[in-house]
């Protein structure tokens, strides 16, 4: 489903007019830029050790100092952004696609299917996210893929419920009834007529969901249950920083600030996007 370009640029212009939205755009843009061109941006190899220069404070050589193995913290922060997005983007888009499909089916399909899917959503939601993640990691073992899958599984219900509610409110509107009267198939009604009316709200939800996902990945890596070393992840930086907290503050600062910045950026962007896409939602928050 290709949206006309003018509409997209209209939305972006609306976001950029709002100061918070502009700030969000800049932060998110910077993070994506750094992640895309990380290889050329890092001053040092993020996993190259240099024991001689370990645990240094910030200097012109090492902007954020070095860790216990002499690795450059700044380079690890930049590369960490890549890891964060590598987890967050597939997880969020996967959850959105599955949640959207199931939600539309629940909203449009027969009542028993609706009840079944809602029970499914409620069940997944009934696990406290981190506890569920820990249980799965304990069983399957830590890896980047596990983190993506866990995050995806836990956020499907959010998208599903919203997609269902939207579908329910639309299913008896005149243009859908007209389509039905003309004998359009269910796939056509859902894909061509419902989808464009739901996708905006879900996109806003996704933008707001990305920080949660980034934080969860960082959290799991901090616990040593996410991305494996020596892969530079913000959570892994915090893990090292935590064990060395009495020797140097710079690892905790270097790992913590990008997480806070990323959360801020995506939250600002999401809030502003919501006001532009659907001003009605504003009151419900």
């Amino acid at each position: 489903m290709e949206k006309p370009r003018s509409e997209l640029s209209l939305i972006l212009r609306g976001v950029a007019r709002d100061p918070l939205g502009l700030m969000g755009l800049i932060i998110v843009g910077t993070i994506i830029f750094c992640a895309l061109f990380a290889v050329w941006l890092v001053p040092y190899d993020p996993i190259a050790m240099n024991i001689k220069d370990r645990l240094q404070g910030p200097s012109l050589n090492h902007l954020l100092g070095t860790d216990q193995l002499g690795r450059d913290t700044f380079s690890r922060v930049i590369m960490g952004g890549q890891v964060a997005l590598k987890v967050a983007l597939p997880a969020v888009f996967g959850a959105m696609a599955i949640g959207l499909t199931l939600g539309m089916i629940a909203g449009y399909g027969p009542k028993w299917l609706d009840n079944l899917l809602m029970l499914f959503f409620d069940t997944i939601r009934s696990f406290p996210t981190v506890m569920f993640a820990l249980a799965v990691v304990a069983l399957v073992g830590p890896s980047l893929e596990t983190v993506v899958l866990v995050v995806m599984a836990t956020s499907i219900p959010t998208y599903g419920r919203v997609a269902r509610t939207q579908t329910l409110t639309l299913r008896n509107s005149e243009f859908i009834l007209a389509e039905r009267a003309m004998g359009a198939s269910m796939t056509r009604i859902l894909g061509v007529h419902m989808l464009p009316n739901i996708i905006g709200v879900l996109a806003v939800l996704a933008a707001m969901d990305i920080p949660t996902v980034i934080a969860l990945e960082a959290g799991l890596s901090f616990l040593g249950l996410g991305v494996k070393p020596p892969t530079p992840s913000w959570g892994a930086l915090l893990k090292d920083g935590y064990s060395l907290i009495r020797q140097t503050p710079w690892l905790v600062v270097g790992g913590g600030l990008p997480i806070i910045l990323a959360t801020l950026g995506f939250t600002f962007l999401g809030e502003s996007l919501r006001d532009v896409v659907d001003p009605k939602l504003r009151k419900n928050r």
Binding site: A215, G256, T267
Partner: peptide, 23 residues
């Protein structure tokens, strides 16, 4: 409010440990 909502608990925990307990 918006800024605080964005702060993940474990990062706040680490930073407050660093500032208020260690330093």
């Amino acid at each position: 409010s918006v800024s605080f909502v964005a702060a993940p608990a474990f990062v706040v925990a680490l930073l407050s440990l660093l500032i208020f307990a260690v330093h």
